[in-house]
């Protein structure tokens, strides 16, 4: 396990360094968007990967409700934590890019609205966990919030796509890079994507393991309490 961890961390660190080198040294400055376009190499992978946690949360929450196996709850919880981090970073990096390009920090585009909504759902999920005292109830309630929240994020996207077409959503997608001819740009995107994906996957695995350890300690502690209670009598 330790060796596996070290290999994963080393690969991730190398990929992150390589992507930073490509973004700041190798990749040419965009003719139209200028230096601000460099944030895309971070923003796009963050935003795309933010869409994976809802799928994981929906599946694992449904698995938890049907099987009551705590591992599904731990995976859902970890995905929400990482999802919240990635969504926050995607919103911040997107905003930093939007200000010089669109002239505003925020616009009510379907994609942006969906991300803000996802962010709220993740916060709600973590809040209901922290406010529920009973562990079984905590897992059940958060699974319910996870399922409805994931479905809702999709509904918000569809709703705002149907009713609020201020401008094409593809503008903030990877469409800007598709026109670029420079192969170093394509390499930059690819390496950033791999690096940030490794960070994403590793964070979820690491958090899920950590939650498993915390649960194990709690159960050992309660066993110890029971034992000392028995000896006292």
């Amino acid at each position: 396990m330790l060796l596996q961890n070290r290999i994963m961390l080393t690969v991730m660190a190398i990929a992150l360094m390589a992507s930073l080198y490509l973004i700041f040294i190798v990749v040419p400055t965009d003719v139209n968007l200028g230096v601000s376009q460099r944030i895309f190499y971070i923003h796009v992978p963050l935003a795309v990967l933010s869409l994976i946690p809802p799928l994981i949360v929906f599946t694992t929450s449904a698995m938890y409700l049907s099987s009551k196996a705590s591992k599904w709850d731990r995976i859902a919880h970890s995905s929400v934590e990482v999802g919240l981090l990635f969504t926050t970073l995607a919103l911040i990096t997107g905003s930093i890019w939007a200000r010089p390009t669109w002239g505003v920090w925020w616009t009510w585009d379907p994609v942006l609205t969906t991300f803000l909504m996802l962010w709220l759902v993740y916060l709600g999920y973590l809040l209901i966990r922290s406010y529920s005292t009973d562990p079984d109830r905590r897992a059940r309630f958060s699974a319910i919030v996870g399922i409805l929240g994931s479905v809702n994020a999709l509904a918000v996207y569809l709703a705002s796509e149907l009713w609020r077409t201020i401008h094409p959503g593809k503008v903030i997608g990877p469409a800007a890079e598709e026109n670029a001819l420079d192969p170093s740009i394509q390499l930059g995107i690819l390496v950033s994507f791999i690096a940030i994906f490794l960070l994403f996957a590793y964070s979820i695995i690491f958090r899920a393991r950590l939650h498993a350890t915390v649960d194990q300690i709690a159960s050992l502690r309660s066993q110890l309490d029971d034992l000392s209670h028995d000896t006292n009598h």
Binding site: M117, V121, G124, L127, I128, F141, N152, S160
Partner: peptide, 23 residues
């Protein structure tokens, strides 16, 4: 059934009904 019911309900409920309210 939680510790902070008045605070928690809007946090869960408002985002959940956003699609309906928007529509």
């Amino acid at each position: 059934n939680t510790k902070a019911r008045e605070i928690l309900l809007p946090v869960l409920f408002f985002p959940a009904v956003i699609p309906i309210i928007l529509a």
